[in-house]
Design a protein around this nucleic acid. Structure first.
Length: 530
RNA sequence: GCGCUCGUAGCUCAGCUGGAUAGAGCACUGGUUUGCGGUACCAGCGGUCACACGUUCGAAUCGUGUCGGGCGCACCA
């Protein structure tokens, strides 16, 4: 809808105009302050310009009213247009809010090390990424969700060592000494037992078999991670293993040409010249590549695979890392602007106003799976999607366990369930309802209809700005409009029953579609457990 | 110290390509609905948009500076 209004204005005025939704609905559906910016160029008062523009729209069947108020230009869409649009959407419900964008995108997210289960910080990036993925798919982008598995480097050795130590202490009752850093947590219990069964106890004492143990364990850990993500309705299209990339290192190094040089028996990348703080080591004296080397090969591989755009979601603590990767991309001969890095900030949890306790059992982190168990996947997804991802977030679990309007996911689901109840209660058939006209419903119904039809705009806006909270905000406000309408208007048994239920169908479609874009299934009934 | 980022109601947060009286939820106070579902709705309370200066017809929004919080500043991943 908005696109059409914008297009009309562009045609008429000859430039891109700012379109907004007035807070006060009596001003119409859309409004623009364009006359203010034109005032200076045209040397005329904004009021006069707005008046002239308004009268030039008089003949359009698209609008029922275009008026100039204090320099603003306000548009009211015609009833015919809204009614037709809604009828189309209901008949083609799977197409609603969809588009056909022609762009190939690679979205990399989560990419947590395969050394332990996901914690709450990972969950935020995971939800953010998956929501963007769903939005992009709906908009018709050719998008691939990818997980980069860091299965090379120190952390893998540390995983092997951690299992050995855990097993010796807990399975074999030995006294062991832990190094400064090692992995801990309940998952080691299962890994130790399985390892004992598979390899026998000798492997826990043999330092030379640490690697073997670790390589087996990281696959086991990945199974846990994939399952945890599955519980959040998150799935990946592709997995890339860091360990498989290094064969390509020599070729990639050559490809970077002058971006790479040797000094002090090490290999460096001249990233400072490309905006980084300083040059970075990519191969150490002993010939082992650094983490950055892996990322360079990986990004080269990404670009060689041929995408139009790349999105990475990283933890905010990696923000300093961006310039060096961009530098590498440029030395490789690609446009670093094609790589977009989105940051996902810290999360801190409260429970009934108190800081959520990290459990020793979990290894002093808050496990994602614990939170999912506590409040459910839907609530967790909703919380993380509803806040800007790049600012720190603090939230209270208690709020999401309540069964009333203070819990936004309950509130929205309840709106959807209410509509389903109405439909079940009505004697009218689906065909009767679909045949009804959505016209002459009155002011309140028109407003609700308009709100329900805004979903396509919201979906596109949320994806383009990478701000998925626009979708959750929209659903909250649509649910609020529905609840208010439900309170004000009796529908069953009235003359307008068919019309009103058609309106309800439209609202339900928007809610259901919106929720599904967040990986949440709309409910037809509220059950006490949820 | 340098870089990034944030500072909006008692709390958690929207709003930030400059635009109509600064919004939501929670909390608090009062009212309406007892049924189409456990509910939900309405109203009130509450703000020097951290502070200062600047740009502009117009600044929460842009710029500069100050203060305060977070994160980062590895040949770790």
């Amino acid at each position: 809808m908005k696109q059409r209004v914008s297009a009309l204005l562009r045609e008429k005025i000859g430039r891109e105009v700012v379109l907004e939704k007035p807070r006060d609905r009596s001003f119409g559906h859309f409004a623009t302050p364009i006359a203010f910016s034109l005032a200076k160029e045209l040397r005329k008062s904004p009021m006069i310009i707005a008046d002239e523009l308004a009268s030039s729209f008089e003949s359009s069947e698209f609008f029922s009213k275009v008026e100039a108020v204090k320099g603003y230009l306000n548009f009211r869409l015609s009833e015919d247009f809204l009614a037709e649009y809604a009828s189309w959407a209901l008949k083609n419900s799977s197409e609603f809010a969809k588009q056909e964008k022609n762009q190939k995108i690679l979205l990399e997210f989560v990419s947590a090390n395969p050394t332990g289960p996901l914690h709450i910080g990972h969950a935020r990036g995971a939800v953010y990424g998956d929501t963007l993925y769903r939005l992009a798919k709906h908009l018709g982008y050719d998008i691939t969700a990818e997980y980069y598995i860091n299965d090379a480097g120190n952390q893998i050795d540390l995983l092997g060592l951690s299992i050995q130590l855990h097993a010796r202490e807990n399975l074999l009752d030995e006294t062991v000494e832990y190094p400064e850093s090692y992995y801990r947590g309940e998952y080691l219990e299962g890994l130790s037992r399985d390892a004992m069964e598979k390899f026998g106890v000798e492997i826990f004492h043999d330092e030379s078999r640490q690697k073997e143990l670790a390589l087996w364990a990281k696959d086991e850990v990945m199974k846990i991670i994939v399952k945890d993500l599955g519980d959040l309705n998150i799935a990946f299209d592709t997995f890339v293993y860091e360990s498989t990339l290094y064969d390509d290192w020599d070729r990639v190094m050559q490809k970077m040409g002058s971006g790479i040089y040797k000094k002090d028996d090490k290999v460096w990348i001249a990233s400072e010249a490309k905006g980084d703080e300083k040059d970075r080591v990519v191969v150490r004296e002993d010939g082992r590549p650094t983490y950055l080397a892996g990322d360079i090969v990986y990004h080269n591989q990404k670009f060689e695979r041929g995408y139009d755009h790349f999105i990475n979601i990283w933890g905010a603590d990696h923000h300093g890392y961006i310039p060096r990767v961009q530098a590498a991309i440029e030395y490789l001969g690609y446009d670093s602007k094609k790589l977009e890095v989105l940051l996902s900030q810290m999360v801190s949890l409260l429970k009934d106003g108190e800081p959520y306790k990290m459990s020793k059992r979990a290894g002093n982190v808050i496990l994602m799976s614990d939170i999912v168990e506590e409040i459910g996947s839907d609530a967790l997804r909703f919380i993380f999607a509803s806040k800007k991802s790049d600012t720190a977030l603090e939230f209270d679990l208690a709020e999401f366990k309540k069964q009333d309007s203070s819990n936004p996911i309950f509130y929205i689901q309840y709106a959807h369930a209410r509509i389903q109840t109405l439909l079940a209660k009505s004697e009218l058939s689906y065909a009767d309802i679909m045949d009804a006209s959505l016209k002459n419903l009155g002011e309140n119904a028109d407003t609700l209809l308009f709100d329900a039809l805004l979903l396509p705009e919201v979906v596109e806006d949320a994806f383009n700005t990478r701000q998925v909270q626009k979708l959750t905000d929209y659903l909250k406000s649509l649910a609020a409009s529905l609840h208010k309408f439900y309170y004000d208007v009796r529908m069953i048994g009235t003359d307008d029953e068919a019309k009103l239920l058609k309106l309800m169908l439209m609202v339900a479609l928007s809610i259901k579609t919106g929720l599904s874009l967040m990986g949440i299934q709309a409910k037809d009934k509220m059950s006490k457990e949820d």
